[in-house]
Design a protein around this nucleic acid. Structure first.
Lengths: 124, 124
DNA sequence: CAGAATCCAACTTGATACTG
DNA sequence: CAGTATCAAGTTGGATTCTG
């Protein structure tokens, strides 16, 4: 059963009121894309993510992780030890979403030379 | 030949200085994702895009199209007629990028019920 | 270690109005 | 039709400081 009133708008990213819009935006954030890419390779701690994702501030990383957790795309596990240890791992859905995103980042990485050359050409 | 100094960083989305970061961000913008999705279905005029992509302002649409054009992902064709007619179509690279993005939006659209249910569960 | 909280500058976005 | 210009307002983001 659907608990939302706009069920007729399901699956319509092009519709303003479709909930998929929000999900899409959460997944395609500057940092969420990179978080998903890292976590798709396995479980990571907060500090590991911070290190691997060059340029993230702790604030943005924490914020991004919160949103993805609330959306049900990742699980946050706190170990009751000192010093604190927190691990992040993708859920099934998160892994599926990450897979799609990784296809994009992978494509960009593989085709970057061609993309940049093409961009140069256009600039002229 | 590569015209950029950071060639050793090629294909490293996780690296701050890799040009792929910028490309990635241009492609994963709120509106660019939807523009790519529309154009992947074929050539569109400005007004058609504005209509189909609910919620875009003309400003944001124009801006998004400019960026994608500069990156070489789409071609803008102006017909010298009155009233003006401008068409937008993806380049080869643009189509490839759009394909990846469409896989994501498609996945979201298809799995939205499950995603939303899962999100509800997490909220508790 | 893993963050939360605060402050503030900078960029983004949305209406609105106007133009070739 | 296909934008551009402008301005107010909202949001983002980073640096810094602090804490269990």
């Amino acid at each position: 059963m659907s608990t939302y009133a706009t069920s007729h708008l399901l699956g319509q990213v092009l519709s303003v009121d479709c909930p998929s819009r929000e999900i899409l935006e959460h997944l395609t954030t500057k940092w969420s894309v990179l978080v998903l890419r890292c976590l798709s390779e396995g479980v990571h701690r907060f500090s590991e993510l911070k290190q691997r994702i060059e340029g993230v501030s702790e604030k943005m990383l924490a914020q991004t992780l919160k949103v993805l957790e609330k959306d049900g795309f990742l699980i946050r596990t706190v170990y009751p030890v000192v010093p604190p240890k927190v691990e992040y791992q993708l859920t099934i859905l998160g892994a599926q979403a990450a897979e799609k995103m990784t296809m994009l980042t992978g494509w960009i990485e593989r085709n970057l030379p061609e993309i940049l050359e093409n961009k140069q050409r256009v600039a002229k």
